Amino acid sequence: MTSPTLSVLDLVPVRTDQTTSDAVRASLDLARVADEVGAARYWVAEHHNMPAVAATNPPVLIGLLAAATSRIRVGSGGVMLPNHAPLVVAEQFSLLEAAFPGRIDLGIGRAPGTDPVTSYALRHGAGGVGDDAVSRFPEYVDNVAAMMAPEGVGVSVQGRTQSLRATPVAASVPTLWLLGSSDYSARLAAERGLPYVFAHHFSGQGTAEALALYREGFRPSEVLDAPRTFLTVNAAVAPTTEEAQRLALPHLQMMLALRTGQPLSAQRLVEEAEEVGIPEQQQPLVEAMSRRWVIGDPETARARIAELAAEHGVDEVMVHPVASAYAGTDPATSPAREQTLRLLAS
């Protein structure tokens, strides 16, 4: 089986032994490893008000990550567009593209990326339009794309039309991707002729159906003449499967809390997670989740990623390194996440 191209998704996890500063420094090092081992792209997600996730502002992180690397494409996986004014997103990513030409991806989603209260604060705190932004998602996608283009877009206000551009003299534009965990964005991406990614790492179900909808409904556009997609997957890789399972346990516990409505906390260290364990009644749910992840020794993990790529008909797999750390690890580092990338790429 052909080995697919590897990419990286990072939520900038925050462990119990880390400050936000530590977590960001660890992610910068992880991005350098991804650049070094030949990964195609490095994306950061947008999440808000979560104790275990520091990826609250993709454009800021992308600027830091692009400056810390030399070759790899850097982007968002994704920006939750209803949280923001389209012009702001267009300006942010056009400026990033101007600073790092040919290296910026703009992945866009329509989920809030947070709890309902925080979502309300994001969308209304600065006079936003709230739920109306969700219903206008297709329009906002079109607006962002048009504003980033060199010719800009004509905007009419009170009978007067004015040209609006994200940057004054754009020489190139970021690659625009639509992201989703349901069939909504699959259909929209197909209709608009845009690249599309299904959140397999989060959902784990419905991937094949969403990709089939996208491929079957795809309409060629000026941006893309054929469907373009890849697969995302959670991964923890170590010299032995037993060690990989230990390193993955803290993230499994965090996802269990998310799925069952429990309070979220910073990601546990391995020893802390082992002390807590998994309640017997929730063991089947954890086992079902872990079967959809890539957890194991290098040979097993590489084979599983190749199988997933072949199963879903993709030639690129975006790995979300979920390995935590042992007690005593330097808080500003994430050696087990780096190990996952190095072992998969070797």
Rank of each mutant, 00 (worst) to 15 (best):
R136V: 00
P116S: 09
S290A: 15
V53A: 08
M318A: 15
E97L: 11
T2K: 14
Q162A: 15
S119N: 09
G63A: 08
G180M: 10
Y196I: 02
R165D: 00
V237C: 04
F230H: 14
F100K: 14
A325P: 02
E242G: 12
V44R: 03
R187Y: 12
A226E: 13
A244L: 09
L269E: 12
W43H: 14
H48W: 03
F100T: 11
H124F: 14
G296T: 05
V14Q: 04
T5E: 15
L343I: 06
E274V: 03
E299G: 11
A145P: 04
H201A: 14
Q162P: 06
E46D: 05
R73F: 01
R73G: 10
V314C: 10
E274C: 07
V60M: 14
M254Y: 10
P174T: 00
S203Y: 06
L341E: 07
E338P: 02
V233H: 04
L224W: 06
S135I: 04
H320L: 14
A248E: 03
R337H: 06
P331N: 05
T229E: 12
P321Q: 08
N143T: 14
A40N: 00
P195I: 00
V134M: 06
A327R: 12
H84C: 06
G125P: 08
L213T: 05
A345V: 05
G296C: 05
D29M: 15
V317N: 12
L30R: 06
P59M: 01
S324Y: 08
V270P: 04
S94C: 03
I72K: 10
L6W: 01
L264G: 09
H312C: 00
L256N: 04
V173N: 07
A210H: 06
M148G: 00
V141L: 13
R15S: 09
A54I: 04
A212T: 13
D10V: 03
P227E: 01
P101A: 04
L341M: 07
G113E: 05
L9R: 08
F202W: 12
L106K: 11
G109L: 00
L106P: 14
P239N: 12
A301Q: 03
G180F: 03
G75F: 01
E151G: 07
R337Y: 05
N57Q: 09
G193C: 02
G277I: 08
E151T: 13
V33N: 06
S3R: 15
V88M: 10
G127D: 10
L9G: 05
P279L: 05
F230C: 06
W43F: 13
D330K: 08
E287G: 02
S185Y: 00
